[in-house]
C-alpha cells in the first residue's frame, strides 16, 4: 500500500548563505495492507520528516513515494488533495483548526469531505469523541480552547472518523492517560483488522510493541557524508 524507493530529502536554506542540508538518503520501505510499521530512531533522526514526505507536506529531492498507485513525489497538487481525502490519513502531533468550529464538526469533517451525509458523519464523530472521553458538554465548543491532551484526542478522533486505507500516526499515544491510551491502541488495531496500512511513531515502547508488526530505524537513512 505504501512503498518508498530510494527517497532522499535535503533542505536548501537560501537566506542562510545557501546552505544545503541533506537529511535523508536511500530511504526504502514497504508497508502492506493490514500492517503497522513503527519508525524508530533518536529525536531528530527524521521520523516526522519521513512522515511528512509521505503525506506530500515535504517535497522529496529524489526517489519514488507510492501510496496506492500514486507517486506522491511527482503528483500534482490536486492528486495529492484527492489522495488525502480518500486514501491517506495523518494524525499529526498538533491539531490545526479553524477558530470557532465545534469539536464535533472538526471530527466529522473528513467524513463530510467524502460525501457522508451530515447525520451519519456527526453520529460517528460523537461516538469517537465519547470513546475518547471528551465530555459531551465540550462537543459544541471549538477545540482551540481545549487542554493539550483533549486537543490530541480530538485530533485522533478526526484521524479515525473516516476509514482511510493508509494512515500516518505521529505520536498518537503521547500525553494520554492509561485508559485513553488503551482506546487509541484499540482503534489502531481495528484499523489494521479492516486492512489499513499504518506507519506510526510511538515513543511509548509498550504501545509500540503491542501494535507494530515491524520496525524501521530511521537513523539508517542518515546521509553518509560528513558535512
Amino acid at each position: 500500500m505504501i512503498e518508498l524507493e530510494n527517497v532522499s530529502k535535503s533542505f536548501s536554506l537560501h537566506n542562510q548563505g545557501g546552505a544545503v542540508i541533506p537529511v535523508m538518503e536511500r530511504v526504502n520501505l514497504k508497508v502492506a495492507a493490514g500492517e503497522c510499521v513503527g519508525l524508530v530512531g533518536a529525536s531528530g533522526a527524521g521520523k516526522s520528516t519521513l512522515m511528512r514526505l509521505i503525506y506530500g507536506n515535504y517535497l522529496a529531492a529524489s526517489g519514488r513515494i507510492l501510496v496506492g498507485d500514486l507517486d506522491v513525489a511527482r503528483a500534482a497538487p490536486r492528486q495529492i488533495i484527492t489522495l488525502r481525502r480518500e486514501t491517506l490519513g495523518y494524525v499529526s502531533q498538533f491539531l490545526r483548526v479553524v477558530p470557532r468550529v465545534p469539536a464535533l464538526d472538526v471530527v466529522a469533517e473528513p467524513l463530510l469531505a467524502v460525501g457522508t451525509d451530515q447525520d451519519r458523519a456527526r453520529e460517528k464523530a460523537a461516538s469517537l469523541l465519547a470513546e475518547l472521553n471528551i465530555p459531551e458538554r465540550l462537543w459544541s465548543l471549538s477545540p482551540t480552547t481545549f487542554s493539550g491532551g483533549e486537543q490530541q484526542r480530538v485530533n485522533i478522533a478526526r484521524g479515525f472518523a473516516y476509514d482511510y486505507p493508509a494512515l500516518l500516526l505521529d505520536e498518537p499515544t503521547a500525553s494520554l492517560d492509561a485508559q485513553n491510551r488503551a482506546t487509541v491502541l484499540r482503534l489502531i488495531e481495528g484499523a489494521k483488522a479492516r486492512g489499513a496500512a499504518i506507519i506510526g511513531i510511538f515513543h511509548d515502547e509498550a504501545a509500540r510493541n503491542q501494535v507494530c508488526d515491524s520496525f524501521i530505524d530511521v537513523s539508517a537513512f542518515a546521509p553518509q557524508v560528513a558535512a
Binding site: 533542505f11 536548501s12 537566506n15 506530500g56 517535497l59 497538487p77
Partner: peptide, 21 residues
C-alpha cells in the same frame, strides 16, 4: 506554486522562505 501546506512548510524558493520565516 504547489500544495498550500507544502509551500508553507517546505518552501523551495528564496523569497518564499523569507516570507514564511
Amino acid at each position: 506554486s504547489g500544495l498550500t501546506d507544502q509551500v508553507l512548510d517546505d518552501p523551495q524558493h528564496a523569497y518564499t522562505q523569507l516570507l514564511v520565516s
